[in-house]
Amino acid sequence: MSILKYMLAMISFTFALNAVSAEVEKVPFTEERFKALQTQSDTLILLDVHAEWCPTCAKQGEALAEYQTENPEVPLTILNIDFDDQKEWVKHFKAPRQSTLILYKGEDRLWFSVAETRKEVIFDALNEAAGQVQ
């Protein structure tokens, strides 16, 4: 394969991956939705304190979309807390800033992270939690 064909194939793959990432639904946080999910023993809930203008949040979103694409069997629901418009929930969950990720199973907080963008760290936390789902 020539270098040009290889580069074109890699560019096509990147665009395809981005298209898949864009398809992951962003579920807005509501207290009712969060409480309902907490009653489901087979569900992991990831609170994503997110701001549209935040490049770190965008990178986290890419990692989360990739995780969901690669692990469709994991019962993970991502609830997005808007950092700019949902300040009461940002304070409630003690998120020090945007790009905070908080993982729950039921009422138990399993993981709390600020500005983590390393895919392997995010994947490890989600996989460890997924192992706790019965």
Rank of each mutant, 00 (worst) to 15 (best):
A36V: 13
A36K: 14
A36C: 06
L37Y: 09
L37V: 08
Q38Y: 08
Q38K: 12
T39L: 14
T39C: 10
Q40V: 06
Q40H: 08
Q40C: 03
S41R: 10
S41N: 14
D42W: 12
T43I: 09
T43Y: 11
T43E: 11
T43G: 00
L44M: 10
L44G: 03
I45R: 07
L46Y: 07
L46K: 04
L46D: 10
L47C: 12
L47T: 06
D48K: 04
D48V: 00
D48S: 11
V49G: 00
H50C: 01
H50V: 06
H50F: 08
A51E: 05
A51K: 04
E52R: 12
E52K: 14
C54R: 07
C54P: 04
P55I: 02
T56C: 05
T56E: 06
C57A: 05
A58T: 11
A58H: 14
A58R: 13
K59M: 09
K59A: 04
K59R: 11
Q60P: 03
Q60G: 06
Q60L: 07
G61W: 02
G61H: 01
E62H: 11
A63Y: 03
L64E: 03
L64S: 02
A65T: 06
E66I: 03
E66L: 05
E66K: 12
Y67P: 00
Y67V: 00
Y67D: 02
Q68T: 08
Q68P: 01
Q68E: 11
Q68W: 03
E70L: 14
E70T: 05
P72R: 10
P72L: 02
P72G: 14
P72A: 03
E73V: 05
E73Y: 10
V74H: 15
V74P: 02
P75G: 08
P75L: 05
I78N: 15
I78D: 15
L79M: 12
L79K: 10
L79I: 09
N80C: 09
I81G: 08
I81Q: 00
D82Y: 03
F83E: 04
F83M: 12
